[in-house]
Every structure is written in C-alpha cells, then in structure tokens.
Design a protein around this nucleic acid. Structure first.
Lengths: 217, 217
DNA sequence: TAGATTGTTAATCGATTAACAATC
DNA sequence: TAGATTGTTAATCGATTAACAATC
C-alpha cells in the first residue's frame, strides 16, 4: 500500500463514497460511471475520478466502476476491513449511544469495554459491554489490545485521561470533549465537537435570514 | 450586518476562536495579539487576522484584540447572542445526551421538547423536557416557534420526518441520521455523521502504521 | 470498429501565507 | 515619538474543475 500525501479533503470524502456504494449494492446496481455517481452524490464526476485515482485505477474505460469491487477497495483504504478494538470512556448518554450503535461493529469496530468514575454506572452492562472503573483503564488496554478510545467525558477530565491513554499505548482518541487534546506525534485525535457543529448551524440560519430575505419564500 | 460570501472554511473556524476566547476570559486575559492567539491555537496569525477581517476590524494597531469585545462580536456573528428554540426528534441515548447537555442553553439554544414514536419513551421527562408523540410534531413546532430540529433517529425514518419538518416550517435540521437529507433552498441541514468520523479516524490510524513505521517510537 | 468512460494533464479557482504600509 | 500590531494587498500554495488522449 503506497499511500502518499493524500489530502485531508479527499479522505473526508471517502466515507461518503462508501455509503453511496453500499446503497447501490443494496439496490442491486453492478456498475456505475463517475457521471451517474456524480448525479446522485451532487459532486462533480471529475472530483470522483480524481479522488479515486489517488489510490489507484479502480475503473475501466468505457465501462465505469464495478460497485462491489470499489466498495471493498474503499473499505480496505479506510482500514475498515480490519478489526479495531475500541473502548468508551464515559458511560453517560453519549457513551451509551455509541455502545448501542451496532453498525460500528459491522465496520470492524468492536467495543470491548466502557469506563466511568461514577460508582452508580460501574458494573452496568450495555449490550453485553461492561462498565468498569477508570482505575482499570491501563490494564484493560494492554490486556485487550485496544487501539481506539472514544472520549465522552466532560472537558475538565479529558486532558488527564488522554495522557493516561497515551501512556497506555492507545493509537487513536475519538474525542467528544469540548477541548483540543495534546498528544504526541503518532497518536491520532479525531474530534467531534457537537457545540461547534451547532454554532455553524446557527450561523447559517442567521446569515440566511439576514442577508437574503428575498430568497425565502 | 453585511455578510457576503464568507467561505465555509472561515465559518467552521469561528466556533473554535470563540472557545479559545472564552478560555482567555476565564483566565482573566484582557487583550491578545494575533501572534499570541496563533501560538495557542496552532494556526497562523495571518489566518486569524484574515478570518476576523471578513466581518470587520475588531482589533487595534499596536494593541491587539480586546478579548471580551471579540468574544461578544463572534457570538453575534454566529447568532448565538439570540435565542433559538430547538426540538429533538428521537429520544434514545443520543437524543437524551443532547437534552442533558446544559451548555447548549448557555449559547442560546433552548430545548423546548422531545419526540419519539416509542410509547415507552413518550411521557418521559428529561431535565424538564417532555417526550411527546411524533403525532404532535407539526402542532408543537408552530405553537412554540421552533427553528431547529435535532434528528437523532435511524436513517430509514429520517427522510419522512425531514419532509414533515420542512412542511411545518422548520428553519434548520441538525442531522445525526446517516443519510443525506433533501430539503428546499432556505432550509439549513448541518450533518453530524459519526460513522464517517470514525472511518476517517480509522484511515488515519492505518495510514500512519502502514506508511511511516520509522516515525513510531 | 464505434461508443463510452476512464485516467491524467492542464487550467481555473479559492484559500492560506507572507509582506508591509497604515496607524494606534 | 518609537514600537507594536493590525488591516490589507500581493504571492504562494493547494484543491477543484475542465479537457482530452488513452483504452476498454
């Protein structure tokens, strides 16, 4: 696998391609051209071809792309053909929501355990996943070959836990805490900042009604 | 307010500026230069000045930016100085997580109600917010001047509910369902696709370990 | 073979960074 | 006034789109 300098913009589009290809498979579509896919996804055909060609030639001139093949290739590129062991730190509503989302498991993300500091939550079992004390964190990570930790705890606790995760050898943190984590090179942080998403939404609502009153019917 | 053609990239950075400015206020910092802020946020000072100047000159030569003033101006730009009435559709874990997150209310987002089709959940009260039947959706939106709907339901139900929301006059949908909603111009959709976020994380983990084994200690 | 559609190069567009005059 | 730092223009960089030769 010769992955070199693929831009962030390209990567962030891959999961969406993957989703549309999955839908096409469900519909029984065997092949698709960049033009047809472009019409469905509302992106340019040129972009689709450019994006895919970062990783190799998956299509065939005069034919288009084989849907199943492209689907499996994107899965491989994204690394979701492999199993990733995951833990959730913070067993509140958000942590439980993630634990209950079975689709992750279909993509190779296996939730091995949950952690909390609240004694009322420790011992709870959600979809077969036990909530443990954060005291057991390091031991559990090493014993179960955990690669990814979802961090669904308040921002005040996040930096300390992040440091412990890094020390225990975690490879990636899926960060839902409203703060920027500082981690060494080689550790991946993927942020999901819900409050920032909601503010962007707010901006777009307000700017629409400020700026272009004529556009609203 | 003369908002013209501000790029999406700029908008998506505003909430982060806002967060850092909030932290500076808490620390008692009164003024800050683009250079100091740049060091904290790990972005270029040039970008900070360019971004802010899209909305007007908030700084002062030789002085920098007044933290409190800039904070309040960004709040105004984002529209979080105003109240936004919000409902949550889908009272599962994710919907409850949002309902329980009190910080949204501090930013002007007031959760007026929750909706579900599950009879076991209807009638439940979460942080003072009642879960209602989806049958009451349209009536409730009109009676309570609801602008924003958070959609935390499975993707199969999402398009139908989105259509009802649009018909009822909603201005924005905060979409957590794993599908792209089709709405008329004038209605804002802000997507939070958790599974796509997790795939991006997966890519970054895999590419790091494929590509640059020498970088890992 | 003729038609279709990719892979890929070139052109355009937009966003980021650098530089510096304006000015507090 | 001198020093600092913005606001803004110009230069660079990167990403998207267009075009078309290669080829199935």
């Amino acid at each position: 696998m010769e992955r070199k300098e693929i831009s962030k913009a390209v990567i962030s589009r891959l999961p969406r391609y993957y989703r549309y290809l999955g839908e096409l498979i469900e519909e029984g579509v065997e092949r698709i051209s960049s033009n047809e896919l472009s019409a469905r996804m509302k992106v340019t055909a040129s972009q689709i071809r450019q994006d895919l060609n970062n990783f190799g030639g998956f299509g065939q001139q005069g034919y288009g792309y084989n849907v199943k093949y492209l689907y499996s290739e994107i899965a491989r590129i994204l690394g979701i053909d492999q199993q990733h062991n995951l833990i959730i730190i913070g067993a509140g509503n958000l942590g439980q929501a993630i634990a209950n989302y079975t689709n992750f498991e279909r993509r190779g993300f296996v939730i091995k355990g949950m952690f909390d500091i609240n004694p009322k939550l420790i011992g709870l079992v959600i979809r077969g996943i036990e909530v443990r004390s954060v005291d057991d964190l390091e031991h559990f990570i090493r014993e179960n070959e955990i690669q990814i930790a979802a961090l669904t705890i308040p921002k005040t606790k996040a930096p300390e836990i992040a440091q412990r995760l890094v020390n225990a050898g975690i490879k990636a943190i899926w960060n839902f805490a409203h703060t920027d984590l500082v981690v060494p090179e080689g550790v991946v942080v993927e942020n999901v900042h819900l409050s920032e998403s909601l503010m962007r939404l707010s901006y777009r609502v307000c700017s629409m009604y400020d700026q272009e009153p004529e556009k609203i019917k």
